[in-house]
Write a protein that binds this DNA or RNA. Sequence first.
DNA 1: TTATAATTTTGTAGCGATTTCAATAATGTA
DNA 2: TACATTATTGAAATCGCTACAAAATTATAA
Lengths: 139, 139
Amino acid sequence: MKTISKHLTDSGIKPSYQRIRILTYLMENKNHPTVEMIHKELVNEIPTLSKTTVYNTLKQFVEKGITQVINIEDNETRYDADISTHGHFKCLKCNKVYDFKFDNKNLEVSDIEDFDFFQTHLYIKGICKNCKYLLNIKN
Amino acid sequence: MKTISKHLTDSGIKPSYQRIRILTYLMENKNHPTVEMIHKELVNEIPTLSKTTVYNTLKQFVEKGITQVINIEDNETRYDADISTHGHFKCLKCNKVYDFKFDNKNLEVSDIEDFDFFQTHLYIKGICKNCKYLLNIKN
DNA sequence: TTATAATTTTGTAGCGATTTCAATAATGTA
DNA sequence: TACATTATTGAAATCGCTACAAAATTATAA
């Protein structure tokens, strides 16, 4: 709780109760939640929590650089408090989003050599190990 | 025109007038357009063209695998008739989306070794060469 | 050709995600 | 305590997209 609060103030965000709870949720559940998911969970603890607050808070987190947006699917915006450059894998069977590491430094790109890079997003879609295993059992 | 029509029939899509025009637009203007942009342009030539038709047609193109969706931004779905694996760079200054090549084969990823990959999307955001140049002139 | 069936396009209505905005609540300051 | 500032809330509005049924077009059969 102390660290979360400090994380906010360090980023120029006043640590209100709602903001602390939302950031705590993001850091404890690394499940790349949607606004819907965050609200649904937190409204149990904070009955008055409005969805607008979740939207406003996440927008602010992204602007201040302590949260990144995951656009792996066009109909759902997900959020991740891990702002390090890493990839996201979405299983098309169970819909779970996995984190993965990739070598950003040795990523060879051409055609955009003289461009300045601010953010890199790598998304892979497919079938995860667990679902592959379950599919094999069935057949 | 002949080739576009053939491209459609080869993919199991009946080459209606609207479908031909939409695919032609995608192939001639490699500008990664949104539904809005496609409709705005084509309604000049086809005054009765409805946005629903553009949505339906693109959905079908994606299902049949002749068009891919670009989710580089959460508030705009873009489309690309180039279905080869390539990256997309969005300039945060001029908002243009550039294509770029990257070495998909030598992409080193960890944590998801035994997963099956179906699609890979690489998005980079930053400032393009042209905007960098223009910024330098100003200052 | 003509009648009928199947497909495509169109426009309206509806839905869900997000934003706007004004009122209320909470917090900070003199 | 009084006042100013900021944050939260909830209702209404907006936007992108989908559902659906009617109209238009195209294909098929007699």
